[in-house]
Design a binder for these strands. Structure first.
Lengths: 215, 215, 215, 215
DNA sequence: AATGAATGAGATTTCATTCAT
DNA sequence: CATGAATGAAATCTCATTCAT
């Protein structure tokens, strides 16, 4: 049942304090993400982050151990909608499932983008972050796609080809469309556009570009 | 004839000097690329670059105006094999042409990778560099693919779909395979692997994953 | 009333902070002036300035944008006692007025000297500084002297000669006496010496060195 | 007797070599003076001096031990026309002698100015240079003027006043007129102007500005 | 004797982090 | 807990001088 925030977080004053701390932490993290996204982690200064979050520099250190730790916190707190979507679509036919997944994957919120952009930026250069943010997360998605393809090939529904390669190609198609958005040189697609993109790309994947030659 | 080199590069001593300068410049640039690739542009220090190039720090400034200028020099001097390959394949059938192009695109040399990795790293964050290195180069490739697709659709050879989207999907597939290589978490494919990758991916693109349903 | 300081400078803690900042800024500027005076602007290092001011190097940059800005701050904050003195003496006879002016001009404080020495040093070489510090300030003094001489010639009190030249000669006499002091090879005159200097120099100016030939 | 340069400097080839070296040394020194005059000793770079002298940087070190030594060479080689002029005028009446001296002192050549400007600039800040260039030279001039004034006072020709102060005032008048020229904000006076300046200033000195009151 | 590339000491400046208030 | 001035390590860059050619 819908317990009050009071009950959830504690008793009265203490609960309010806790909630304020959590909220402030999130604000700082979002500010940091925006700054990192704009200039990259290394070029971002704590001064800028503090200004963006509208707190003093020293305050940052009450919530995070340092600049680096903010980045790691982002990596940890990033949500992965794919995972849940993936489970939701099991049992549906290829096309319906693929479209639903792509649609979910395209659906970024405006505020999430800075986080992803910041993390991608550093993961490109920092092995520890790549491991935490990517290999551990993204690779799981790819693995599931691979397994799915393998199953469909075994079932005779898909032509025989390397499923790992296929999975990577699928992920690649997605990247090709989303990277420009995350980089900030293409605009975030509206829900309708997400749907359309998902459909087109699914059809490309399933049937290719070529007109079927009648036998 | 002993005159050849002389004539090509200049007059004896002066020519030798010129060649030494060009060679040294290239060595420094390669060293810088390796360092940038490893830690990203911003975290790389001139000290490290100098060490990697085995010269004194001051020497760097005899060849480049500064760190940033090295990056720009990389962007300018990057070769783009795609372009030439693209012209070479005109007039062949879809499959042969696509395979040849992908093969050319996969064929990076070991020494080129640090350059690309370094440039990608900064282009993710630096708009000027993105413009110079990417939008101006890469976008041209995409545009040509788009035009090709549009022509094939008009000719009735391809199913009707948004050619821009298709082009981006093609580029995306390529990215999905090459980014891990450039990032350094997958190994550079051998020439044979390049060929195999090119074939598989081409077939996926042309005919999709699905087994054709007999009519 | 205890409220006075509060009201003047601000509200308690904030006022104290402001005053501390202003004080610190002045300390640093004085330290910089001493170092500049000793070795010239270009040879002075931020390290030395920091040591002289007994702060860390980084602290300098919390108060000034850099070495050059310190110099400009000096130029701006320099007081010009001449101006005020000039106005004060209007209406008095030639001799009284001239003596008062010279006396005011000779009255440098020990702490002002490094500022003037530092500024002169750079103004000798830097056109922008010369403009800001000198042409704009000093030239006004000369101009007023010129106008005065011109008036007195018109009134028949002074012999006819080029007033501009005369003004420059007056300024020159002053320079001849003060430059060694500012340079640090002559000692600052005591108030009594200032008075004596002013009288002697005034008499030289008004009547020359020659004994009057009785007619 | 007008010996040929050949005989003076040596025999044939060797003499030519010697003369070339001397000439080159002078060229470099003049170039250095121009650069020092423009930006001050400390901000001037050996690169600029080499460019100005149209030789390679390394060549400078074949003629001078280093940057500093160029400055000292300037101080040594500076001519002092005052000295000779001073002797030439002995025995003439006050006015004629003073005019001749001032005229000689105003007569700078265009090429001498950079030397003086460069030396003044550093002497303002460098005690060793001040000693060599000034105290040792200039002070002698002042001393002679002082002695002259003392003699004339003793002879009853000049009013009684501190002769040292008078000497300094005379030098000061000269400075007031020449400093702007050396600094480069006033133009070098033509020979006619020199004469006029000398006369006006001499009359000011001897008789002052005031019209004589008839007794 | 002339050259100019290489050198590296040293200068300026930035900025993450600390800590007294 | 918030603040922001102080810190000093570290980074970039300059330039007088050397030395092999």
């Amino acid at each position: 049942m819908a317990e009050t925030a009071r009950k959830r977080e504690g008793k009265g004053r203490e609960g309010r304090r806790q909630r304020r701390i959590v909220r402030r932490r999130r604000e700082i993290l979002a500010a940091a993400a925006r700054v990192f996204a704009g200039k990259g982690f290394a070029k971002a200064t704590t001064r800028e982050i503090a200004d963006e979050a509208d707190v003093a520099e020293g305050t940052l250190y009450n919530y995070f151990g340092g600049k680096r730790e903010m980045l790691l916190a982002m990596a940890e707190e990033m949500e992965t909608p794919f995972e849940t979507a993936m489970i939701a679509v099991s049992g549906q036919d290829d096309r319906t499932a693929a479209i639903a997944l792509f649609e979910a994957a395209f659906a970024f919120s405006e505020t999430q983008i800075p986080f992803v952009r910041a993390l991608l930026s550093e993961a490109w250069v920092d092995d520890e972050l790549l491991e935490q943010f990517f290999t551990a997360r993204w690779a799981r998605v790819e693995e599931r796609i691979r397994a799915y393809i393998a199953r469909r090939i075994a079932a005779g529904a898909f032509r025989p080809f390397d499923p790992a390669l296929g999975a990577r190609a699928v992920v690649g198609m997605y990247l090709g469309l989303m990277l420009p958005v995350i980089r900030g040189i293409a605009s975030l697609p509206s829900p309708e556009e997400c749907r359309a993109l998902a459909e087109t790309i699914t059809d490309l994947l399933l049937d290719g570009v070529r007109v079927r030659v009648e036998s």
